[in-house]
Design a protein around this nucleic acid. Structure first.
Length: 376
RNA sequence: GGUGGGGUAGCGAAGCGGUCAAACGCAUCAGACUGUAAAUCUGACGACUUCGGUCUUCGAAGGUUCGAAUCCUUCCCCCACCA
């Protein structure tokens, strides 16, 4: 097995910053660019690990905060670690809990040592800082541990952003000193909000400390879409060419392809599985609501031309019926479809980069894509 | 045949003289969802509308009243129990 953390760049696109590479982890290689399905509570909601690997995914996400709240990282450790606990042989990246500091902000109070917060489950007082987060992630035994960061909301004052960046950097030093699981990689997170110079300083400082990979954080936290790519550019341009870059939380197909063009290798997003449960389909033309009455008697699949289990076997009318009835099979089949689309588009992107036609591929894709598509 | 209860918007169900085009739930329709407190949330839901309003509703028909889903009369249905 290749040393975990090895990042082999196989090919670079001549017309953009896109590249194809392999990231080696303790649980196998990950071909990039890659989308990682989110399995916050040790499950990609509604799917079995066999479903997820059957869709071609080599890596998923888990969440430090949630799994520590329930069932507890010590329990998972006693059960043999997160992989064994959930019966997933592929790689796992664990988010550090930093995002929850942001998304559960009303429940939290940030200090130098970490964050005191009220559990969203029972309201009890809890504490998590860089030391705790890394300890939990070690106990979970994930392949990639994210550093405990402070995600900056949008909008934010410059001074606020500056303080958050400084704290993220101090926490990064602490995280690096913590013990890890065997073969566990550490990815640092670039913050800075909409302030390009802060992102630059954050990126450079993190690189100086040195980690196996770098993430772009604080994106898709409510800012206008136009600010996403500038934030990516301001971060990526200061990250090493020979290490993986991970854009956290971004998962719309157009945004992902644009980010790939700017040199991003990894993505995660709750969108495909969440909107599946809320009745929407991801398609390569954009997303649409399968619940709409106009599909009531539509014999076509959810997406024409799609080869996923859902589209091969079931009509749009049937999926709409299941979703309308609140039947769990509907959530499951739509999740399968949505993840299939995410995965195949990433596979196509890798192929296109390999064949020096990524710019053309991206242009063609975006020409027929719109955020919400009226008639897929 | 007798006694009691009841008929309210697609369904269920509040209201019991004015603040009622009528609570609430469901169904329906539409929208949102980006490191998952999300199988969640938001809005619409009598008809028209120049979006300010206008008009027709609470089993049916009459009546009382300034004013009725709400009170009275008759009729038509439904349910329960008793014969």
């Amino acid at each position: 097995m290749t040393q975990p953390g090895t990042f082999e760049v196989h090919h670079r696109d001549p017309d953009s910053h896109a590249r194809v590479a392999t990231l080696h982890t303790a649980h196998g290689p990950v071909e990039t660019p890659v989308f990682m399905p989110v399995g916050t509570q040790a499950t990609v909601k509604s799917l079995t690990p066999e479903d997820v690997s059957g869709l071609g995914y080599p890596i998923i996400l888990g969440n430090t905060y949630h799994l520590n709240e329930r069932p507890g990282s010590d329990l998972i450790e006693r059960m043999g670690g997160l992989h064994r606990f959930m019966h997933w042989d592929g790689a796992i990246l664990t988010d550090s809990g930093g995002f929850q500091v942001w998304s559960l902000a009303e429940l939290n109070q940030i200090t130098e040592e970490g964050v005191t917060f009220k559990s969203h489950l029972d309201g009890s007082k809890q504490f998590m800082g860089p030391v705790e987060s890394m300890r939990i992630q070690k106990e979970l035994g994930s392949d990639i541990a994210m550093l405990f960061d402070e995600c900056i909301p949008y909008p934010a004052e410059r001074e606020y952003a500056e303080n958050a960046v400084d704290r993220t950097l101090r926490w990064a030093e602490v995280c690096k000193e913590q013990p890890r699981a065997e073969g566990q990689l550490q990815f640092a997170i670039v913050q800075g909000g909409e302030f390009g110079d802060l992102r630059e300083r954050c990126a450079k400082s993190l690189v100086d400390i040195g980690f196996e990979g770098y993430a772009i954080g604080g994106v898709s936290v409510g800012e206008p879409d136009e600010l996403i790519l500038p934030g990516v550019e301001a971060s990526v341009s200061h990250l090493p060419e020979n290490q993986p870059r991970y854009l956290m939380g971004v998962g719309m197909l157009d945004q992902m392809l644009e980010a790939v063009a700017r040199g991003v290798d990894m993505f995660d997003c709750v969108l495909p599985t969440r909107i599946a449960r809320n009745g929407s389909a991801v398609t390569r033309k954009g997303r649409y609501s399968v619940r709409n009455a106009r599909w009531k008697e539509d014999p076509r699949p959810v997406e024409e031309g799609c080869t996923c289990e859902c589209c091969r076997n079931y009509s749009r009318a049937y999926i709409r019926h299941l979703i309308n009835c609140g039947e769990m099979l509907g959530y499951r089949l739509l999740s399968i479809h949505n993840l299939h689309v995410m995965g195949t588009v990433m596979a196509e992107a890798r192929q296109a980069i390999q064949e020096n036609r990524f710019t053309e591929y991206r242009r063609n894709f975006l020409a027929t894509y719109s955020k919400t598509h009226p008639d897929p």
